[in-house]
Design a protein around this nucleic acid. Structure first.
Length: 606
DNA sequence: AATCTTAATAC
RNA sequence: AUUGUAUUAAGAUU
């Protein structure tokens, strides 16, 4: 099960979200969202969802990060957020410029940590509503969907749909130019009719940018809600493109998918949109339709969505003649098997991405050269290789593209004296599975026993179309998702029990979260006895006590039975003997018990 | 089995 | 110095 669903369940929000989704599918308007947003469980869930964000240590304009929030008890956290929501006045967003892939700078707008928490509360509630509405071929920033699904759709349109003309449009600084009034109207017309919620979002959009003041357009890149708002904004584009052909109610259109034989006699234009955030393509059957779409979309963006396009980066191409770039891939349409019987898509890693991979992989190899004798730098290289391969494995030409990087030479010349060489055939099955198609006697370098992964040893994988039934907010949608995982390790009633019962009211939010994670990780078993108990019969023990500087971190906690908990802290010999007799522990159990006793400065028991 | 952290890609 | 959403994998721990 995904982390997300587990968290929804843990905080008893799944049913609420399911209802929002169902009502949204039904076309209902939403007038009472605010009570859900400010509900205790929604706020605690929001904290749980953002506390592991990679930016948790990054401060906003107030100089605060996640540490500010985990100082609070859960009651204080809930009270703080509810107080903020009641008279919402977001703080300024911090301006940071980061380099983009193409050498330009990306302006980030980083809200303060408490504003990020508030945004998460709202996002959780809007997400199920919009998942029910969004166009099926929008793939960016959405649950369970990724770039390979977008690529797959594009390839299907070519191979199955025989759409060889591609319209590419580049929106100028999309995030920074989203029109606030337009966005607010879209929220209203898509059924968000709760005045308090609309006002919250409105105030959020009006949050000043550090040093630049209040903006009348744009959503901050760095805001938690921003990706969702971006999709809401461009959903109108998806639907409009679909209305031109796919959803056009007409007898001129063949019921057979992709066929448009009769369309040439009408003003209809046939085309199919594939969108990943602000990057999208329209695939058409003919050049004429493609050109018409190109002009119509530029006009639509300009007048309906108030967005400019950079014309020099736009194009209409016959993909049989010229390749097109999309999501880091370079796609061309070539004759199938060299015959006249048709065409297929051929995909490569884009030139820019190859250059980046070349540079980055060499840099990491050099770092291994100058690092101390430990596997860490080699593990870093391996996960880099793993990451690159798992993303680009969907390019039909991936093996030859990655071979062209010639990293093997760099490894040989830079690292020969830093590790030991062994043959491929001596390595374990997992390695062979990750690095396929190598000759058994190929020499592989091992850095302190960690064999380096091979960049080019890869077989291309066919991208799969997104299975449209998959969804986090319906039972059937979740079942499709859960195919891989089997029985539930812990009854959800146990989790709910822990969640509801707070042993001490001064517990911090992190303790609440981590003790649940820990109970599930231990599969409900006592850390000493190894036997499962109901949480009511157990205590969550701090290995290092809080008075001694112990934290609420996951690794400092352990669940033990009541009896064991007493034994950890007992100093009186009659108590110790009584419980020893009662529990009749094995030597191994006594050893683990003594380790815990040692951490609280108690002498071991025999 | 499960949790955590850390590495990658897209936008 | 690096936010956010989504996806993927590895490592560590029990």
């Amino acid at each position: 099960m995904s982390d997300k669903l587990r968290d929804f369940e843990m905080y008893e929000m799944q049913e609420t979200f399911d209802t929002l989704y169902a009502n949204s599918k039904n076309g209902d308007n939403f007038k009472k969202l605010y009570p859900i947003i400010k509900s205790r469980n929604n706020i605690l869930l929001a904290y749980r969802r953002i506390r592991n964000n990679s930016g948790r240590d990054t401060v906003g304009v107030d100089g605060k990060n996640i540490n500010e929030l985990n100082e609070l008890t859960d009651d204080e956290l809930v009270e703080m957020v509810q107080g903020k929501l009641a008279k919402y006045q977001p703080q300024a967003v911090r301006r940071v410029y980061i380099p983009k892939g193409n050498g330009k700078l990306r302006p980030l707008g980083i809200p303060t940590i408490s504003d990020r928490l508030v945004q998460q509360c709202i996002m959780q509630v809007l997400s199920p509503i919009y998942e029910a509405k969004f166009y099926e071929h929008s793939y960016g920033f959405r649950d369970n969907r990724n770039a390979s699904h977008a690529l797959s759709r594009l390839v299907s349109l070519i191979n199955v749909g025989k759409q060889y003309f591609c319209v590419s449009i580049d929106i100028k600084g999309f995030f920074d130019n989203v029109n606030h009034d337009k966005l607010k109207r879209q929220l209203w017309s898509s059924g968000i009719r709760d005045k308090q919620v609309l006002s919250l979002i409105s105030k959020m959009l009006d949050a000043p940018v550090e040093g630049e003041g209040v903006q009348n357009k744009g959503v901050p890149q760095g805001g938690i809600l921003s990706p969702l708002l971006a999709n809401i904004y461009l959903d109108e584009l998806d639907k409009w493109v679909a209305s031109q052909w796919v959803d056009f109610p007409s007898s001129y259109k063949s019921t057979v998918n992709f066929l448009n034989l009769k369309a040439r006699n009408t003003n209809l234009k046939s085309g199919y949109i594939v969108r990943y955030a602000d990057d999208f393509k329209i695939m058409c059957r003919t050049y004429d339709h493609a050109i018409r779409f190109y002009h119509a979309i530029c006009d639509f963006l300009k007048h309906r969505l108030k967005l400019d396009v950079s014309e020099e980066k736009c194009s209409v191409v016959d993909m049989r003649e010229k390749s097109v770039e999309f999501l880091g891939f370079k796609i061309k349409v070539i004759p199938k098997g060299g015959t006249r019987y048709g065409y297929v898509a051929k995909t490569d890693i884009s030139d820019g991405a190859i250059t980046r991979i070349k540079k980055e992989s060499r840099d990491i190899i050099k770092r291994i050269r100058y690092s101390s004798d430990s596997p860490e730098s080699a593990i870093h290289y391996n996960s880099y290789v793993q990451g690159v391969k798992s993303y680009y494995q969907y390019a039909t030409n991936v093996a030859s593209n990655l071979s062209s990087i010639l990293i093997y030479r760099t490894i040989k010349s830079r690292l020969s004296d830093r590790g030991e060489w062994g043959t491929y055939q001596t390595l374990d099955a997992d390695y062979k599975k990750r690095n396929v198609g190598m000759k058994p006697n190929t020499q592989i370098l091992k850095i302190t026993d960690t064999p380096l992964e091979t960049l080019y040893a890869i077989r291309t994988k066919k991208p799969m179309n997104f299975s449209q039934g998959i969804n986090l907010y319906t039972k059937s949608g979740r079942e499709l998702l859960n195919k891989k995982s089997k029985t539930e390790a812990i009854p959800s009633a146990y989790i709910t029990y822990i969640h509801r019962n707070r042993s001490r009211s001064n517990n911090r939010v992190d303790f609440r979260d981590n003790r649940i994670s820990k109970y599930v990780a231990q599969r409900g078993k006592c850390g000493v006895l190894g036997v499962r108990f109901h949480p009511a019969e157990m205590d969550c023990h701090h290995r290092i006590q809080r008075i001694d500087g112990g934290t609420d971190e996951f690794k400092n906690l352990v669940w033990v039975s009541h009896d064991i908990h007493i034994l950890i802290h007992a100093t009186d010999s009659t108590t110790i003997n009584a419980y020893k007799l009662k529990l009749n522990m094995t030597k191994k159990q006594i050893d683990t018990l003594n380790k815990l006793r040692n951490l609280v400065s108690n002498s071991p028991i025999m």
